[in-house]
Amino acid sequence: MPHKGVARGETAVIAQMIVNGLLGGLIYVIMALGFTLIFGIMRIVNFAHGEFYMLGAVGVLVLFGNFGMNYFVAVVVAGLLTGALGVIAERVLFRSVVGEEMPGMIMSLGLSIILQSVVLLALGPEEQTVARPFSGIWRIAGAVVPWDRTVVSISAIIILVAFYIFLKFSRLGLAMQAVAQDPTTASLMGVESGTIYASAYGIACLLAGLGGALMAPIYTIGPYMGQSPMLKAFVVVVIGGLGSIPGAMLGGLLLGLTESVLATLMDSTTALIASFGVVLLVVLMRPNGLLGRTVR
C-alpha cells in the first residue's frame, strides 16, 4: 500500500490520522460555529468569514511578530479587534440585508474582497510568517503531535467551552438561540433584535479572528489565506445543517477526520475531488444537513 507511514505500523498510522483529523477539525469547528450563528440568526451566508480569520492572523503577525507582544495576549487582542470590526460591519453593512439571502451573499462577497485588497495593499502579495512560540513534539499511541498544534487545540477547546457557557447561561446567548430557532420570539425574550444581530455577527467574527490568530504561527499569512477556511466552514455547516450549532461541532470534526483519512490514503488532488464529491452527496441526500432542521 502506498501510504506514507506504513513503516510505523498500522496502529500508528490510524492514530496519526485521528490526531491530524482532530487537530484540523477543531479549527473548522470554530470557523463553522460563527458561520452557522450568522446564518441561523441573520440568514446571511457570510462569504467574508475567512477574511476575519485572516485579520486575526494578521493581528498576531503585527502584535506578536512586529511589536513582540506576548503570544497569548496578542491572540486575545487580535480576536477582540476582529470581533469589534465585525460589530461595525454588521451595523454599517449587514443590518439592511438581514433575511435576504442573495443580497446578503453579495454584500459579504463585497466585504470579503475589500478586506483582501486592504491587506494586500498593507502587506504586499508575499506570504509572511511569524516565529513559532512553541516547538517540539510529543507522542500518543505512536502518533506524533507537534506542541504548537497542541497549544492551538487546547486554546480552541477553551474557546469552545466559553462559547458554550455563553450560549447556555447568558441572557444574550439564550436570546440568540431563541432567535435562531424562531425569529418571532426575539421580542418575547425582551432583547432588542438589533443587539442580537450585532452581537451574533461580532461573536462570529471574534471566533473567526481567534481561529486565525491561533493558526498564525502554523501557516503562512497572506491576504488570501482566509478563502480555504471559509469554504471549509461553508462545507461543514452544510454538512451539519445550516443554523445548527451541534451540527457545526459534529460536521467540523467529521470534516477534519475525513480530510486526514483521505490525505493519508490518496494523493492530494484525488483527495480534494473526493471531498467535493462527499459534499455533493451530502447536499443531495440530506439537503438539510446531518443534524439540520428544515430551512423553509
Binding site: 454584500m107 478586506l115 483582501q116
Partner: peptide, 21 residues
C-alpha cells in the same frame, strides 16, 4: 494594480447592495 481592482469590485458590490439593489 490588481489590489485596486479588487477594492473597486468590493466597493461596487457593497455600494449597489446598500443603495441600489
Amino acid at each position: 494594480a490588481r489590489e485596486y481592482q479588487l477594492m473597486i469590485y468590493g466597493v461596487c458590490l457593497i455600494g449597489f447592495m446598500k443603495f441600489a439593489k
